[in-house]
Design a protein around this nucleic acid. Structure first.
Length: 237
DNA sequence: TATCGGATTAACT
DNA sequence: GTTAATCCGATAT
């Protein structure tokens, strides 16, 4: 083994030991040293989602979202979520039980998708909670990519920072190649091509108010945003 | 690293 | 016609 190679390996070990957030130190096509997780190759089933949306938003942190694509399977750790709870929550698209062609997907049992488009190009992913009578869903705001090669291929960002691949809700939709057609998809259906996987690793979870909902009056300060502390893939806002 | 403006379109009024 | 649970590239610091 030559010296250069040894040095590279030592650098990787250093990064792992520091447990620092991932920075732009990481070069293109290099493995992600924070790729630490304890996957139980077990698809999460319906009961997991049949809880109040705020509880589900917390439970989803650290779980792995996966979608099968022609290029292979895309995977990422969910590192940031927000809960939206109609009918009372003024920040929720389904506030006051407002049911339209867009928002009707809130009225599904837990574990289904609500995908909405915003500002033109961007598709944001929500996972419904509780039962079909409860219009509530969790917005996935950021993931930590595990399938870097596929995600780099899918996302057309020129940024050299790995974080820019997935540190925002629209970017997550981009990583998973989602659009309106995925509305109503059942994450508990093996044939849907998309599912969640359990993860036994424990994370230090932070809580804050939700982002960019200034219009929501008294609801804008609810502590319904959850994220993994010191994880650089969390969107800063 | 922070701020700024353009992009771009479905949904709603 | 206006808005939006945003993103991206450009520019300045």
């Amino acid at each position: 083994m030559n010296k250069k190679k040894q040095k590279e390996i030592q650098q990787k070990v250093d990064l792992q030991q520091e447990e620092k957030p991932i920075t732009k130190k990481i070069k293109k096509n290099e493995a992600n040293p924070a790729e630490e997780y304890q996957v139980v190759e077990q698809m999460l089933t319906a009961d997991f989602y049949k809880v109040d949306v705020v509880e589900l938003a917390q439970k989803l942190i650290g779980k792995i979202i996966a979608r099968q694509l022609p290029q292979g399977e895309v995977r990422g750790i969910i590192v940031e979520t927000e809960a939206y709870k109609a009918p009372e929550d003024k920040a929720c698209h389904a506030y006051n039980n407002k049911k339209t062609d867009r928002t009707k997907y809130f009225w599904q049992d837990g574990g289904h998708l609500y995908v909405y488009s915003i500002y033109g190009n961007n598709y944001c992913l929500n996972i419904t909670a509780a039962t079909k009578d409860d219009p509530e869903a969790v917005l996935i705001r950021a993931i930590q990519p595990l399938s870097f090669d596929i995600i780099k291929e899918i996302r057309k960002t020129k940024s050299s920072k790995l974080q820019d691949l997935s540190n925002g809700p629209g970017k997550c939709g981009g990583c998973l190649l989602l659009d309106k057609s995925h509305n109503g998809l059942n994450l508990c259906d093996k044939n849907s091509g998309m599912y969640l996987i359990d993860n036994n690793k424990q994370y230090d979870i932070g809580v804050s108010a939700r982002i960019n909902i200034d219009y929501a009056e008294e609801w804008k300060d609810k502590p319904w945003r959850f994220y993994i502390k010191n994880n650089s893939f969390v969107s800063k806002g």
